[in-house]
Design a protein around this nucleic acid. Structure first.
Lengths: 198, 198
DNA sequence: CTCCCGACTTGACACTGTCAACCCAGTATT
DNA sequence: AATACTGGGTTGACAGTGTCAAGTCGGGAG
C-alpha cells in the first residue's frame, strides 16, 4: 500500500469525530471506526491501547476545534470586554448544541481530563481564554483568586444551563428562548461583578 | 418458592440502586442485576421491555429518594426563605456527591425525562419544590414567568458547578471550598433578585 | 377437563472490548 | 551479507452485553 500521508492515529480520530456527528458517545465502538477506516479491529489498540484513552484522544481533538472556534469568535467581535464575554458564551452554546455528542464525551464520565495530553492541553487553553475574558470584565481591585472563583461560577452556570437545556431536562413551562436566558443571566452576573469586588 | 412480599420489579430496581453505589451507570448491566436478584437474564425484560426503560425506572426511584431528602432538609430548617434555599442547595450537593452514579443516570443522556412515569413524577415534584423555594425569595412584583426563568438559572448554576466539580473538570488552581463557592454564588444571585424585579 | 395467559426460563444471535499469538517489512547488528 | 529485532498490523479467540424467539409452567376461566 502506498504511503498516503495520513497517519493512522489521526485518521481514526477524525473518523470517530465524524461518527459522533450522528451517534452518541456511548454507542460509538472502536470496531466501528476501525472498519470505517478500513483497518482491522485491533489496529486502534496498537496506538491507543485502551478504549478510554482512545476516547480521550478523540475528546481532545474535539475540544481543540471548540477552543479554536471560541478564540476566533472572540477575536472577531473586537475589544469590548462585555462583547467578548458574550461571544465566548455564544461559542460555548454553539459547541454544546452543534456537536452535543462531542461535548458529552469531553465533559461526560467516560473520560477524565488527564487521560490524554492533547485533551489536557486543550482544556487548559480553553480555561485560559475564559480567565482572560472574565478578568477583562472585572473592576480594579479584584485579586486573582476571586477572578478564578468567578470564572468557575460563570462557567458552571453556562455549562449547567446549556446542558440541562440540551438534554431536555428543563420543563417546557419555563418561558423564553434559552439562549436569551443565558445571556441575561451573564449580564446580571457581570453587573454583580462591577458592584462587588470582594 | 414462598411468596416473599416483594414484587420482582421493585427488587430489580432496589438491586440496581445498590449496585450504582459502587459502579457507574454505563457499566451497569441488566444481566448483572438479574443474576444478583437470582433470576434469569430475561426476567427484567418481561417487566421493563427495554434497557432504557429499566434505567429510567431506576432513575425514577433514585430521584424519588433525592427529592424526599430535599423536602425533609427544607422542612427541618424552618421558615426563613433564604435558609430554605440554601438547604435545597445542600440537598442537591448531597445528592450529587452522595450518589454520583444515580445522579449521572438521572441527568445523563441514557435516559429521557419522559421515559418512565415514575421518573417524570419525581422530576416534577423536584421542580415544584424548587419553584416554591425560589418564589419565596422574590420581592413583590415578580411575575410567574420571571420566577420560572430564575429557577432555571439558579438550578443550572448549581447543577453545572456541582457536576463540573464532581467530575474533576474544574482546574485545581481555583481556590476555596466548592461548596462555599456555590453558596456564595447563590447569595449573590439572591441579592440580584432583590434588587431587580424585571 | 381443557384452554389460555402471563410470568419466567432457555437458547441463540450479533456485537462489544480486550488478550494472545502471529506476520511481515525495514533496520540495525554482527 | 546474513541475522535478529522491532513496531505496525492482522487473525482468532473469549467473556460479557442487549435483545429476539421459542419453550415451560402454574393457576384461573370457560
Amino acid at each position: 500500500m502506498a504511503h498516503d500521508g495520513t497517519e493512522l492515529t489521526s485518521r481514526l480520530i477524525a473518523t470517530a469525530l465524524e461518527l459522533l456527528e450522528a451517534q452518541s458517545a456511548e454507542q460509538l465502538s472502536i470496531r466501528q471506526v476501525a472498519q470505517r477506516v478500513g483497518v482491522s479491529h485491533q489496529a486502534p489498540y496498537v496506538h491507543f491501547g485502551d478504549k478510554r484513552r482512545f476516547l480521550a484522544a478523540v475528546a481532545g481533538a474535539g475540544l481543540e476545534h471548540a477552543v479554536t472556534d471560541a478564540a476566533r469568535r472572540i477575536a472577531a467581535v473586537g475589544l469590548d470586554p462585555g462583547a467578548r464575554l458574550h461571544a465566548l458564551v455564544d461559542a460555548y452554546l454553539a459547541f454544546i448544541d452543534g456537536q452535543p455528542h462531542v461535548h458529552d464525551l469531553v465533559y461526560g464520565p467516560l473520560v477524565v481530563m488527564s487521560d490524554h495530553p492533547r485533551l489536557q492541553a486543550a482544556a487548559i487553553r480553553y480555561w485560559t481564554i475564559l480567565r482572560e475574558t472574565v478578568a477583562a470584565n472585572q473592576p480594579s481591585g479584584v485579586d486573582e483568586a476571586e477572578v478564578l472563583r468567578r470564572c468557575a461560577t460563570a462557567w458552571g452556570m453556562v455549562y449547567g444551563l446549556a446542558r440541562l437545556n440540551a438534554a431536555g431536562k428543563i420543563p417546557p413551562t419555563v418561558p423564553a428562548d434559552r439562549t436569551q436566558l443565558l445571556h441575561d443571566a451573564i449580564e446580571v452576573m457581570v453587573d454583580g461583578w462591577q458592584r462587588d469586588s470582594s
